[in-house]
Amino acid sequence: MKRTIPLAITAIVGAVLVIAYFIPHPPFDGLREDFSIFFDIMATFAFILGGGNLIKMHGNRISRREEGWFFSLVTIVGFLLVLLVGLTKFGNPDGFRGSSVTASGSYFDHVYEYIFRPCGATMFALLAFYVASASFRAFRARNAEASILLLVAFIILLGRTFVGALLTSWLPDSLRFLTIPYLAEKIMVVLNFAGNRAIMIGIALGIVSTSLKVIIGIDRSYLGSD
């Protein structure tokens, strides 16, 4: 019973939504949006679940004085502080009523502006460093395939900058097809297009196949059983 009911719900909802795709007439036309909104409502309640789990897990770490418990303390304090500032709209110019949580000048806005924003940008900026270290390690001409990969990487890297144009600017118009920006564009637009489309076709079919397996009930491993 514990598995039969979820499987039945999955099958019915899945089948109805697939059929609704081909029926534009009410009430089928709005089903997809309605279910999407239902999911959002559930996901919103799940925030409470997530927040509860966060407090419980880090609370345990603090009470047991586990290694790194101080970070757990920072997490809980940060979580509660932002929650409090957001719920009470502290510092909002228009007071508690009639103003947005993120109103300019509010404490919540300050948290966003001076903590969240720089932290997010910093984490994203790490990518530049990791791309460099991964490139240094991965782009080695070990064999023919790796050499082609290396060559293509070179052309794209140079083609994405002004240097690429500068390096081959001396080539006459008749040899324009050899300039780095031209090659970079062709690699992206022709080879990359083709490769990406092939991968996307495979992915699309994989999604259809997996969805059918889940709807029909062939694949039940997400419920914890085969």
Binding site: A128, V131, A132, S135, F136, R137, F139, R140, A141, R142, L150, A153, F154, L157, L158, R160, T161, F162, V163
Partner: peptide, 24 residues
Amino acid sequence: RMGPQTVTHLAIIFFIVLGNITFQ
């Protein structure tokens, strides 16, 4: 902002070249 991006690309190219020379 394209200035730093261009120079960083060149730095990455430098490392790729360096890595390949030592590898060979």
